[in-house]
Design a protein around this nucleic acid. Sequence first.
DNA 1: CATATGTCCTGAGAGC
DNA 2: TGCTCTCAGGACATAT
Length: 286
Amino acid sequence: MRRGLAPVIGSRIEAVERPPCRRRPIAVSPRIDAFDRRCRNRIITQIGRRGKRVMIYLHDAQIIAIEPRMTGLVLLADPPTEDHLRLRLRLSGGPHHELLFWDRRGLGTVRLLSGEESVRAITSRLGIDALAVTPGGLRDRLRHSRRAVKVALLDQTVVAGIGNLYAAEILFVAGVDPRARCDRLSQSQWDRIASATRLVLQEAIHYEGSTLADGTYRNALNRQGSYQNHHRVYGRQGERCPRCREAPIRRIVQAQRSTFFCAVCQRKTGIHALLRTVAPSPSTRG
DNA sequence: CATATGTCCTGAGAGC
DNA sequence: TGCTCTCAGGACATAT
């Protein structure tokens, strides 16, 4: 999302409005009239990101913080439907005349922050950024936690930026059982989790995200991502594991969220986990 | 303090 | 066909 918004750097905000929407009005703060007044005639100087939040920096040190949550989209193109259009920033002086926030389920939020202090207030609870995780950073924070590692990876105060889909993919690539307690993980497992986190997220960014069966996720130009075609385990319960090509991918529920994994390739301990670190097995089949 | 649960929301799909 | 029910999961508030 952040990358897709780069074209509006340098544009001027002419107005902020809430389009007519039959659904519940979006949660904006401050209220829309103050939001509009404080944004008018400001120049967008940079687009940033803190965890999963998109940050639009204005020239007077204000910042628009967008939290898309499940179904929120930030768009420079026409939205999928007019019905769920929640917020419109009218722009001038650049290639796009509007920046939209569209949200089918309406869980997302948009906040206007004044300066670094309020940014800190809103982001101070975020952990290390997912694209910058280190094995030591993860281990220091979680080595005494009794939680299942998959649940801990979803905690944004531990690592900021991993969602449910990516937690499953990361642990599969790392070869770690999602049910394993954090306080039972070895240094080598933390190493693999950290590198798998960076690998999976960089892949996902390369393919512009995952547009799942509900078709919701789109980039800033309303185009689908293609990372769903590269998912190793997410949503693939019952299919054979892409690594061992034998065991079926299993679906379980942890903390009210679906988890997908291979019970053979993601064992807590044992010879399989040890062998895996030595040589990533080439398939002898197929 | 650490961890778990309830809450919000809409559309899709199941079951009858 | 149309109704009711369940589920998906982000972050935060509240409970244990």
